[in-house]
């Protein structure tokens, strides 16, 4: 009996060994459970510097930032899609490349959009749009026919684009957007470039994570090193290599 079990194990042993990738870093990575995804979402949202933009933006998380915390990317995508279909979060195109999606909770999103247009003549239209369209259909983009069915004509769409709630995707198709997101995008692109440059200039193009956290942040990284590191690791621009003295960050192409 014991011999049989040993042989059985032997059949499975290489499979089990190869299927599990080596765990990166010291702490155990959370699995792909919905709870882990939501915890990661909260963690990254807590890193978002709200004061930097005069509290005009809701806590904005990029989808790939979650991949640095949850190793199972498929679980992240599926759970975010589930949350989007339930209407708890919105996915936004930020103009950072077609594959970069921003994740924002629905309630803070509505609040900040209304705050941004408060006092302007478009406020009524934007409120109507948020109540009728955004609440009703959780898609990323809106088609012309769909908007017309919801009671928004061409002039209304022009006003909404001017207010920054919609951006043009294609002829007769618009992405949902966040007003005033340009300041975030500028800070984000600069921060990303600053942090990547720091790693690229260092010896062997690698930096220990602990050293990077202790060091004074480079001047461009106003969004915070932690927030930007999640982005670079999730977008696979940096790789985290486990070493005896903590994780080492290395440029992905080397």
């Amino acid at each position: 009996m014991s011999r049989r079990r040993r042989l059985l194990c032997e059949t499975f042993e290489p499979k089990r060994r190869r299927l599990e990738p080596p765990r990166a870093g010291g702490e155990p990575q959370p699995d792909g459970s919905p709870g882990a995804v939501e915890a990661a979402l909260r963690d990254v949202a807590a890193l978002f510097p709200r004061g930097l933009f005069g509290d005009s933006l809701p806590p904005l998380v990029l989808r790939h930032q979650l991949y640095s915390l949850v190793s199972d990317r498929t679980a992240v995508d599926r759970h975010l899609n589930h949350l989007r279909a339930e209407g708890r979060i919105r996915l936004l195109h930020l103009g950072l490349g077609a594959d970069t999606l921003g994740v924002v909770s629905t309630e803070p999103y509505k609040e900040k959009v209304l705050a941004a247009v408060a006092g302007t003549p478009r406020a009524g239209l934007v409120r109507r749009f948020l109540d009728a369209a955004v609440a009703a259909c959780p898609e990323l983009s809106y088609e012309q026919g769909r908007l017309r069915a919801l009671g928004f004509g061409d002039t209304d769409v022009t006003q909404l684009v001017a207010a920054g709630v919609l951006t043009v995707r294609d002829a007769g198709s618009w992405w949902l957007a966040l007003p005033g997101v340009g300041r975030f995008v500028r800070a984000f692109v600069r921060g990303r470039r600053a942090l990547l440059g720091l790693v690229r200039r260092s010896r062997h193009r690698e930096v220990p994570l602990g050293e990077l956290r202790q060091r004074r942040a480079p001047p461009g990284a106003r969004l915070g090193v932690g927030y930007l590191l999640h982005d670079l690791l999730g977008a696979q621009l940096l790789r985290s290599v486990p070493t005896p003295s903590g994780p080492m960050l290395r440029l992905a192409e080397t």
């Binding site: 898609e139 990323l140 088609e143 026919g145 769909r146 995707r169 198709s173």
Partner: peptide, 19 residues
């Protein structure tokens, strides 16, 4: 790729599988 609205001739035009 975004699993958008189905059965709409107008939305077909903007559908892409990749970027």
């Amino acid at each position: 790729q975004h699993n958008g609205e189905k059965s709409k001739a107008s939305s077909e035009a903007a559908n892409t599988a990749h970027n």
